[in-house]
């Protein structure tokens, strides 16, 4: 059982910059809008987009909530400064609290989802204002685990890194010169103080990447992975997450009752005509 998550960084860099350029320019636009969180995923996407489109065509948007850590803001600024890209800082506190304040007992989960969706609204508004497409920053590990908010950070026009596992994001980030503090720090959605992804998920990205690579890319069965030494609990958790969160990876369900229905037998690519 060979687990090789290494990538040819030069090749991937070429493919992903070409992808961004192609998918944006074929719509008639030339620009991109990216939410810069201070984390590695959005930093890498910003580096790729700037290489593809030119710094002046990529808008980096910082969207802090009142509980966001100063580190996140500072690290986001590192990316913006390194790339010399136009940027905006648009706090979402007022917007999010307008809803959050109505529910005194609101859970962290609900608050986190509201924040993610406020950021989506902000980015899509800038999409129109800046005349650029929103570029997504979710990686393959997150997408497979469903570790995202539907119509929040999961909403975007295109995503260059959605087929790269977290370890591969790290490798490409190192190759592209993403600032070291961003590469080194613990991944966090920063939805509340001290939160880290790995603590919330209950396992490390390194473990998840290796298991997902076997299950998804190499089509090993869960049983085969357990036999190979992965803990049964961990395998069960991941398999369940993949299935339970599949709704986040597909379009919403439409009741098919006529002779031709979008999504079922009205089938065209998004890139139709371009």
């Amino acid at each position: 059982m060979n687990i090789d998550l290494s990538i040819n960084s030069d090749l991937v860099r070429t493919l992903l910059t070409k992808f961004i350029h192609s998918e944006i320019t074929r719509t008639g636009l030339t620009r991109a809008v990216i939410g810069i969180s201070g984390g590695i995923d959005s930093a890498l996407v910003a580096f790729l987009a700037v290489e593809a489109l030119g710094a002046e065509n990529v808008l980096g948007v910082r969207m802090p909530y009142k509980s966001s850590s100063q580190d996140s803001l500072d690290h986001a600024q590192l990316v913006i400064d390194a790339l010399r890209m136009p940027s905006l800082t648009i706090p979402i506190t007022e917007m999010a609290d307008g809803l959050i304040a109505k529910f005194p007992d609101i859970s962290n989960m609900r608050k986190g989802n509201i924040m993610a969706r406020c950021r989506m609204v902000t980015l899509y508004d800038q999409s129109e204002a800046f005349r650029g497409l929103v570029v997504g920053t979710g990686n393959k590990t997150e997408i497979m685990l469903g570790y995202s908010t539907l119509y929040g950070d999961g909403a975007y026009a295109l995503n260059p890194i959605g087929d790269l596992y977290k370890a591969q994001v790290r490798q490409l980030s190192r190759a592209m010169g993403v600032p070291q503090p961003i590469i080194d720090k613990a991944p966090s959605a920063d939805l509340w103080a001290g939160q880290t992804d790995e603590q919330e998920l209950g396992f490390t990205y390194e473990e998840a990447d290796r298991l997902l690579y076997l299950l998804v890319d190499q089509r090993y069965t869960p049983g085969e992975c357990i036999e190979a030494g992965f803990a049964q609990n961990f395998v069960d958790t991941v398999v369940k997450r993949i299935r339970r969160n599949h709704f986040k990876r597909v379009m919403p369900v439409v009741a098919k009752i006529t002779t031709r229905t979008p999504g079922y037998d009205f089938l065209y690519l998004r890139d139709w005509g371009t």
Binding site: L15, K18, F19, L269, R270, D271
Partner: peptide, 8 residues
């Protein structure tokens, strides 16, 4: 060459 919905 080129992309169609992400296929390269």
């Amino acid at each position: 060459v080129g992309f169609e919905d992400g296929l390269n």
